[in-house]
Every structure is written in C-alpha cells, then in structure tokens.
C-alpha cells in the first residue's frame, strides 16, 4: 500500500529531533562549557568570547549524528600567522584533554572526541580557531580568517579561508521550511553513509527555495529541492556562495565527478520513489529508537487549560535570570 509521503516524512523528522536525546545533550553542553572556560582562562585577552556554531546552533541537527562546534575568535595581533594560531590551540587542547580524549587536527577545526563514558556515550566537540580580519573589528564585522590545515575542496592545505560564522547562522536560522528539508537531506546522508558536506546541502537547499520558489507540503518541498539539485549541481558556472564570504564558492568543495554522482543519486531516488512510495523509507528512515515514543506524542500541540480560553493575563510581577 502506498504511504502518505507527507505524514511519513513528518514522522521521520519527529523521531530525529534533538529533544529525544536531552540527557546526552546535557553532557555535550557541560563539556562545551568547560572547554570554553579553559580557552578563556588560557588565552585571556587574546580572544573574544567563543561562539557556539554548527548544526545545533543552526537548528539543523539530527539526533543520530551530531557534534557541537565552538568558534574561537582570536584578536588580530594574537599570533603572527594563522598556522601558529592553529598549532597553539591544538597543543593547548591536547595538553589539557589528551588523557581523556582523542584530540586531532581536522580541515579547519580541532576535534576533541572524549572516550566513551559509563553510559557508552562518546562526546565530540569541534573547536574552530579563527583570527579577526581587521584589527579590533570583530565585534563590528564578525569577519574571521580560518586556517585550512588540510585540503578543503579546491583550497590547498596551509592556506586560509575568510568567513563570517554569525552570517552563516543567521542565513539559515529563521528559515523554517528550509531547515526541515536540510534535516531530511542530512538524515539521507547519515543513514546512507553519504559523504557530502552538510554546509553544501544547507546552501543548495536555501538556493533551491530562493530560485525555484519552493512551497507545498513536506514531500513536495523535498521533491522540488531534490529536483533542483539533480538539474543544477552539474551545470557550468553553478555557484553556492558562503553567506559569510561571497568569494567562497562552496560548490567548489566538490570535484566534477562528485557533482555528477550527487545529481545521479537525486535522480535515482526520485525515480524509485515515483515507482513505489515505500522506497522513501529506504532513503529517509525513521529513527527506530524513538518511534514508539513518537507515536504517543505526535499529535500533541499547544494546549489550553480545561474550561479556559486562550485569553490570558500573566502574573503581575515575574523575574527572569
């Protein structure tokens, strides 16, 4: 029997919500807080306040695969080179956490993967050091230069990348429909072991919504986005501008054969789902860990007290912290 694609995809998103893993998230937040404090204590006036970034900050995280990212904005005069900055942060983190975690240099970040705890939880935090582009201007322009430690698309290793993390977060944060489609594409990526960068999927989804005026229900929006990727990613001159730096073309992080592959995968998925809607379950599976819980709660909306109306007069005085 054909499935209701819209309702099925809603269930997929529900079962992948981060709120299902709140206790694990608390551990992540605790680790992130202690790392930020350690960095602030060590680098004192060399840095501005570290900033939360990544998928959790952008509300595009899924509970089957996530990490928390922290951007550390260094002042212009803190280090003479970006490489020196990157190596110094690595050394500090390795000295501080090396006995309880694997600390490793990644493309533009330093990954800290804490050894599994008693609950078999492995906490992973990525630290992204960046140096302000213009002296004493970070609070105004939010522009940072990142060190590119290893080859990053067309960017060679030991080079730099100008970006604006805050602009990247703003770019996606208030786009509700786009975020749903991004989360679905990340679920596809994660459950089918696809290696495409999440940032690229974010940008191409937002571009699809902008260019193709995508609307409709959840399935219709996903279908239109997949069609957009299928039809456009391989086109000559197709660009995906980093909202933090329009000079970064994130489409360049894919080689041309990878673009062909992505287009073909979108075509195959669309064709197979068209043949049989049940195939949607292969590409976009529910998270079985939270399926049962979800079934009991999925219809729960905002509530009104028994016998009351929505008209409310709040407490006379109320303190927040």
């Amino acid at each position: 029997m054909a499935i209701n694609k819209k309702e099925y995809l809603q269930e997929v998103l529900e079962t992948h919500k981060m709120s299902h893993v709140n206790s694990l998230l608390d551990k992540y937040r605790d680790k992130r807080k202690s790392i930020k404090e350690a960095l602030e204590d060590y680098y004192t006036d060399k840095i501005y306040s570290p900033l939360n970034s990544g998928s959790y900050a952008k509300h595009t995280a899924i509970n089957t695969k996530f990490d928390l990212d922290v951007v550390v904005p260094f002042k212009k005069k803190s280090f003479s080179t970006l490489e020196e900055m990157f190596d110094d942060v690595f050394d500090f983190l390795n000295d501080t956490y090396g006995t309880e975690a694997t600390v490793r240099k990644q493309k533009v970040s330093i990954g800290i993967i804490f050894y599994k705890d008693d609950d078999n939880h492995e906490i992973s935090i990525d630290i992204v050091p960046g140096r302000e582009l213009n002296e004493d201007q970070y609070n105004e322009d939010n522009k940072l230069n990142l060190y590119v430690n290893s080859k990053y698309g067309l960017l060679a290793e030991k080079t730099h990348l100008l970006t604006n993390i805050k602009a990247q977060i703003e770019h996606i944060k208030s786009k509700d429909n786009e975020r749903k489609i991004i989360r679905l594409l990340k679920i596809w990526k994660s459950s089918n072991n696809e290696d495409y960068k999440s940032f690229l999927m974010e940008l191409i989804t937002v571009k699809a919504f902008d260019k193709d005026n995508i609307s409709g229900n959840l399935w219709e929006m996903l279908e239109s986005t997949m069609e957009y990727i299928r039809d456009n990613i391989t086109k000559d001159g197709f660009t995906l501008s980093d909202p933090g730096n329009s000079g970064n073309n994130v489409a360049d992080t894919l080689e041309s054969w990878q673009k062909e592959n992505l287009s073909t995968k979108m075509k195959n998925m669309l064709d197979r789902i068209e043949d049989n809607s049940d195939n949607l379950k292969i590409y976009f599976p529910v998270n079985p860990d939270f399926k049962e819980e979800d079934n009991t709660k999925s219809n729960e909306g905002y509530g009104v007290k028994t016998g009351a109306s929505t008209f409310s007069v709040p407490t006379q005085n109320q303190r927040f912290g």
Binding site: Y302, V304, K305, S309, T310, S312, V313, P314, T315, Q318
Partner: peptide, 13 residues
C-alpha cells in the same frame, strides 16, 4: 512554571 499555573493564564504551553 509560575506563569503557567497562574489562575488567569488559560494557555498551558
């Protein structure tokens, strides 16, 4: 919690 439990507040979330 206090707001939600307040007598003249009709909404529960």
């Amino acid at each position: 919690i206090e707001i939600t439990e307040y007598k003249t507040v009709g909404i529960s979330n």
